[in-house]
């Protein structure tokens, strides 16, 4: 090993800082948007052309809900792992092939960004 430590540290440092700029900015934006995400997630969840969750689930103050699927309550207790909740909305048939729930993510009924917001909202229920 003839390369000086200085060089190595320098390059790695540069690399890390370059890489973390986008990471940092997204996470900062995220923190600021957390409240918004919940509100936007609710709109998306109620929107008939997007999540349309009310079609099958009862949700807090949502008007004329369906009763095909369980009411969305105590979601943190039912899904301690947020990633599992996301996976359920992404494609419920992966865990249960008989599930009638549409694979919202897999079939792009909603975009990934929209799905994240819906998860944020549903997790507050």
């Amino acid at each position: 090993m003839t390369i000086s430590k200085k060089h190595l540290v320098g390059t790695t440092g540069l690399l890390i800082s370059v890489l973390s700029i986008p990471l940092l900015t997204t996470s900062m934006a995220f923190a600021a948007d957390a409240g918004n995400a919940v509100a936007e997630g609710k709109d998306l969840a109620f929107d008939r052309k997007k999540g349309n969750c009310l079609s099958c689930h009862m949700i807090e103050d949502g008007a004329s809900p369906g009763n095909i699927a369980p009411p969305l309550i105590a979601m943190k207790a039912r899904f301690p792992d947020k990633a599992k909740l996301r996976a359920q909305i992404w494609d419920a048939t992966a865990a249960n092939p008989d599930s009638p729930m549409p694979p919202f993510g897999k079939h792009q009924v909603i975009s990934d960004a929209e799905l994240d917001k819906i998860v944020e909202y549903v997790w507050t229920l």
């Binding site: 009310l54 079609s55 009763n67 095909i68 009638p100 549409p102 694979p103 079939h107």
Partner: peptide, 20 residues
């Protein structure tokens, strides 16, 4: 896109309410 079979609605969920 919503991934339903006829049976999902008229058998599995018969009698249930879909919106209204």
């Amino acid at each position: 896109q919503l991934n339903f079979s006829c049976a999902n609605c008229h058998l599995q969920n018969v009698g249930m309410v879909l919106r209204t």
